[in-house]
Amino acid sequence: MPQPAGISIGYLAERTGLAVSAIRYYEAQGLVEPWRNAGGQRRFHRADIRRLSFIMIAQQFGFSLPEIRGFLKSLPGSRTPTRDDWARISENFRSHLDQRIETLVKLRDNLDGCIGCGCLSLPNCKLYNPEDRAAQKGQGPRYLMGDRPEAENDP
Rank of each mutant, 00 (worst) to 15 (best):
Q3N: 14
P4M: 09
I7K: 11
G10A: 14
Y11S: 07
Y11I: 04
L12E: 00
A13M: 07
E14Q: 13
E14S: 08
T16L: 14
G17Q: 10
V20M: 13
S21R: 15
A22V: 12
E27S: 06
A28N: 09
G30K: 07
L31W: 05
L31H: 12
W35Q: 04
N37L: 12
G39S: 14
G40N: 12
R43N: 02
R43T: 02
L52D: 01
L52T: 01
L52S: 03
L52W: 05
S53W: 00
M56K: 07
M56S: 04
I57V: 07
I57H: 04
I57N: 01
Q59L: 14
F63D: 05
S64A: 07
L65T: 00
G70Y: 10
F71R: 09
T82N: 03
T82L: 11
D85M: 07
A87S: 05
A87W: 01
I89F: 06
L97A: 08
R100K: 15
L104F: 14
L104G: 05
R108S: 04
D109R: 15
D109V: 03
C117G: 15
C117R: 12
L120Y: 06
L120V: 10
L122G: 02
K126H: 05
K126F: 06
E131T: 15
D132C: 08
D132M: 10
K137I: 05
G138R: 09
G138I: 06
Q139M: 10
Q139L: 09
G140Y: 08
R142C: 06
Y143D: 04
Y143K: 07
L144E: 12
R148T: 09
P149E: 13
P149W: 13
E150F: 03
E150W: 08
E152F: 12
N153E: 13
